[in-house]
Nucleic acid binder design. Structure first.
Lengths: 109, 109
DNA sequence: CAAAAACAATAGTATTCACTAATGAATTAG
DNA sequence: CTAATTCATTAGTGAATACTATTGTTTTTG
């Protein structure tokens, strides 16, 4: 179940430092289990599972069950909503400052 | 006063839909006052001011008082922490966003 | 000077959130 | 089969959050 407002869900998922650290560790590791994620983290295994659920609902992570373990992996297209949002407003700035530079150039040759 | 963990503060500031809408409207407008922001928004003027305070503390926005009005405008380097984070952990879009990150750094006066 | 306008700040409230502790379900090991 | 391992889920709790309503401050207007 993917959230309707994807930008909001992705940003909210990554806004929490603990949850973002979990995501970063998943990205760095190709595949990683919950126990491995719990080790080296300051929170409980239940908290890790809750963060994984949030990341999964945001489309940032996917899971691969194997036996009693569940391997987590970063979803490549997960950051795309955030990338689109940034490229949109980054482009806004680029155009604005391009115009400003041109304006200053015209005023003070 | 800028927050210590800039990535967290920027993401947290933009995670809320109402506050992000305020920021987007500031970006689209070159300069805009609080009453103008309140018009067209579903929340109170006090709520807008609180969101502006959060955006300012995150380094996303700056203010220019003039008489009894206060004009708000987007801070060009505000999105840089987010761009840096994305270029690092979004390996998938690294090439795509290398240009944007460099652009945001070049814009800095 | 008095009224209005623009904005910030505060107190209060309802909701959400991140976490722990405990339990449950499923799989593997001895 | 029994015990242990892995993970998800739930209830409960304290803290944070987004909002309204109100008040206060500064500046403009009539």
């Amino acid at each position: 179940m993917i959230q309707p407002d994807t930008v909001t869900s992705v940003m909210r998922a990554l806004a929490d430092p603990t949850r973002r650290a979990v995501f970063e560790r998943i990205v760095q590791s190709d595949e990683i289990t919950v126990v491995e994620l719990t080790r080296g983290s300051s929170v409980t295994q239940g908290a890790i599972s809750q963060h994984l659920k949030a990341l999964k609902q945001a489309g940032l992570v996917c899971e691969r069950p194997e036996g009693r373990k569940v391997y987590y992996r970063a979803e490549p297209r997960g950051l795309e909503p955030l990338a689109d949002w940034m490229s949109h407003y980054g482009a806004f700035w680029r155009d604005r400052f391009a115009d400003l530079r041109q304006l200053l150039k015209d005023i003070d040759p």
